[in-house]
Design a protein around this nucleic acid. Structure first.
Length: 427
DNA sequence: TCTGGGGTCCTAGGACCC
DNA sequence: TCTGGGGTCCTAGGACCC
């Protein structure tokens, strides 16, 4: 059997690069993008990385640095990033019939059957064309397994000599091992904080050492996923390309509030909004949910005030994606766990036991009526269509509230250049 | 003052079945 | 004396990812 060939295309500093697409003045300026509520750093330009700013670092710790280096600061503009991501993925799909969209800024292409004789050249073509057509800088890494692609991706970002493209399939086994020796074990895809600490206790510190570890021993302590990583490092492909996106088995909507919530009224309003958002996602993938979990918590960073966290799971009498129904049950769950006297900073809702809408089982004896179900589905389809065309939250339920003073902070938001006519770039 | 959000996979253990 | 063997399904918890 012929060895497989995969390419991983990964956008560099994706959120920062998105901000730069429509704002050329940012090109040479150090720039960061913040998480929800403008709290943590989630994307950094290269010069900011060099200043030692860490992924996930709270921005309040950086006040001096931002002033000193004139760092440009942006709130997360997900409408913009999602749209540019979709352009990028569509553009990449022309380079191979087999594509897996892995995250908002990463895509795999399988190149096994393409019979390319110069893979590095092919990688350069992808990189240059993406830049030309989307304005996004990407790195391309090519290898015989997905795990090795991820390794190549680390190397390509460390060493500018590769100029953004690295093909590991052209290397001899010995050259490959030299590369693996440069990668710390915690940078291997699938090895997180706990596993890397465990492995280093046994003297396994690099990707190369993991490659030559006893796979049976690894399986015992790192389960079958660990064994797969070892085999993938040896060039045996165990993680196939996932072309189809299976429907989600869990849909979650949760946020920290812009300020702490202390009244049940506001909590009900916030929760209703989270349910509405999650229900939209549910309908987007044509699914129904039959289980719902509500959770809330106080801030664990506030050590001086009393802590409380709880969750409540309900099983619904029948699967549904009807927002008013889901809100009704979520509020029942909330009633069971809400306690007066705490300062809540986060809440959310999660749907599980998700089934496709066409697999709906009519209930002979219960309160469920198929006729009612279709009426509800049509109503939601109209609401979703209106919100899609005229902007989200054009139509909402009264309980979702008009002021939403608890909403998250986004003080440094750029324009939604590509998805809102009113915010289109003017020259 | 201030600390993200949304997912997946795997395993162990309990309940239950014939 | 001696109390089976082989399964499935579900959930919680722990690991990981971007």
């Amino acid at each position: 059997m012929r060895n497989k060939v995969f390419a991983l295309i990964d956008a560099n500093n994706f959120y920062v690069s998105c901000e730069r697409v429509f704002n050329a003045s940012l090109d040479k300026k150090p720039t960061i993008v913040l998480s929800n509520n403008d709290s943590c750093v989630v994307a950094r330009s290269n010069d900011v990385k060099k200043l030692g700013v860490k992924m996930g670092q709270p921005v309040f710790q950086l006040a001096d640095l931002i002033k000193e280096h004139h760092i440009q600061v942006f709130s997360s503009n997900y409408s913009l990033y999602a749209d540019l991501s979709s352009r990028l993925m569509t553009f990449l799909s022309q380079f191979s019939p087999a594509q897996e969209i892995y995250s908002i800024d990463e895509s795999w292409l399988e190149l096994t059957d393409l019979l390319l004789d110069d893979l590095t050249e092919f990688g350069r073509t992808i990189k240059d064309r993406v830049w030309q057509y989307t304005g996004l800088p990407v790195s391309v890494s090519i290898a015989s397994t997905k795990c090795l692609c991820k390794i190549a991706n680390k190397l390509v970002k460390i060493d500018p000599a590769y100029q953004g493209v690295l093909d590991l399939t052209s290397l001899s086994e010995q050259e490959l091992d030299e590369c693996l020796d440069k990668v710390p074990v915690e940078d291997v895809w699938g090895i997180g904080y706990k596993y890397s600490r465990f492995l280093s206790n046994y003297g396994i510190l690099t990707a190369k050492q993991l490659k030559y570890a006893d796979e049976k021993w690894i399986r015992r302590y790192l389960t079958v996923t660990g064994e797969r990583i070892v085999l993938e490092l040896r060039g045996i492909s165990c993680i196939p390309l996932a072309k189809e996106q299976p429907p989600k088995q869990q849909i979650l909507s949760s946020k920290t509030f812009g300020r702490e919530i202390t009244s049940c009224e506001e909590m009900r309003e916030a929760l209703a909004n989270y349910v509405a958002r999650a229900a939209e996602k549910l309908r987007e993938q044509h699914s129904l949910a039959s289980s719902l979990t509500v959770f809330l918590r106080t801030s664990s960073f506030k050590t001086n005030s009393e802590q409380y966290a709880n969750s409540f799971t309900l099983t619904l009498p029948y699967p549904t994606a009807f927002t008013p129904e889901l809100i009704k049950y979520a509020l029942q769950g909330l009633k069971a766990i809400y306690r007066e006297g705490y300062r809540y900073y986060k809440a959310g809702v999660s749907f599980t036991k998700i089934t496709p809408e066409e697999a709906l089982q009519p209930d002979l004896f219960g309160e469920f009526s198929l006729y009612e179900h279709y009426r509800q589905a049509r109503l939601m389809a109209v609401v979703d269509a209106i919100n899609r065309i005229y902007g989200k939250d054009t139509l909402i339920l009264a309980i979702q509230g008009m002021t939403r003073s608890w909403k998250m902070k986004q003080l440094k938001l750029s324009s939604r250049f590509t998805t809102q006519w009113s915010e289109i770039l003017t020259i």
